[in-house]
Write a protein that binds this DNA or RNA. Structure first.
Lengths: 156, 156
DNA sequence: GCGAACGTTCAGAAATTTCTGAAGACAGGG
DNA sequence: CCCTGTCTTCAGAAATTTCTGAACGTTCGC
């Protein structure tokens, strides 16, 4: 039985997993609400009801997930309220955030390589630099590979 | 000129980048201290001096990074103190933590797929499941590829 | 055994993050 | 215009995380 309660619990559970992955609590709950919603779009009011939080919290959370490129405005005829919907590429977008994180770490490492003379630290730093350089190339390639694969075998 | 100050600043900067990547502050600073140290191993006392924090903080941080598999005990002849050193595979280990995070998210998604009936939510969830299943396979393969590449071309 | 050096634990202080709710901005209808 | 419904902002409350420091173990030299 796929009841409403089970659906909400599953949504909260997923939100927690996203928190574990580094997302902020409210943003995670919001994203999960979009994911589990049986409509194409939600309004801020829908979210406040669904999550049981204040309008202020919803406003902040929407701003965050919109900024991350995971949801977008959706114009619905005959409604004055702002509707939002999950973007199709939300998950690959979320994963691609890795890329900028890796980039930040790599910059810091390169600065470190410049700051130390030869010795054990230099060796460790260059090793680390090699690995993060590798990742910086491979992470976008990974996402590209998924998208291509999905294009080839549409829907089973 | 690769002075001591530049080295410490670079270490703190890298620690911040690691915090951005989701690591805890003290664990990040500790790992950076190991990375930048011009010795093979450090003691808790060395770390407390280097980082300017209490012994208690160091103890907790060492426990964390050791638990993550990034450093290990190193037995040094003629020293009563506990020495620790960075493991060679620290960076691939750190990156591989992704794997268990992805696994957690995927479990939550699968639970969601079971909890909802056919509809938009079901479609979104199965899409997400496909992507995270893909990642779960590919992330370890990526690390493996790096290690193999490194074995083939030892050191330029 | 006793003392000294080192490390760990943990209760609480301090800092930080997160959420709320009230005030206000904005758009459209009447 | 003013009113209503909707959304945003922001100061402060609440919750959470992080760090400290003092008390307690442990180990080794003597």
């Amino acid at each position: 039985m796929t009841g409403e309660t089970a659906r909400r619990e599953a949504a909260e559970h997923l939100a927690l997993a996203l928190v574990g992955a580094g997302m902020q609590r409210m943003a995670s709950r919001t994203l999960a609400a979009f994911l589990f919603a049986d409509k194409e779009s939600l309004t801020a009011g829908d979210l406040a009801d669904e999550l049981g939080v204040s309008a202020g919290s919803v406003s902040g959370a929407i701003k965050m997930v919109a900024q991350m490129g995971l949801i977008e405005r959706s114009f619905v005829a005959g409604s004055r309220r702002e509707h939002y919907r999950m973007r199709d590429n939300a998950w690959t977008t979320l994963y691609s955030r890795q890329h900028s994180i890796i980039d930040d770490v790599l910059s810091a490492v390169e600065r470190g390589v410049d700051a130390v003379g030869p010795g054990p630290a230099y060796d460790r730093l260059t090793y680390m630099r090699d690995f993060y350089t590798f990742l910086l190339n491979e992470v976008p390639a990974l996402v590209e590979r998924f998208e291509q694969q999905r294009r080839e075998e549409p829907r089973p």
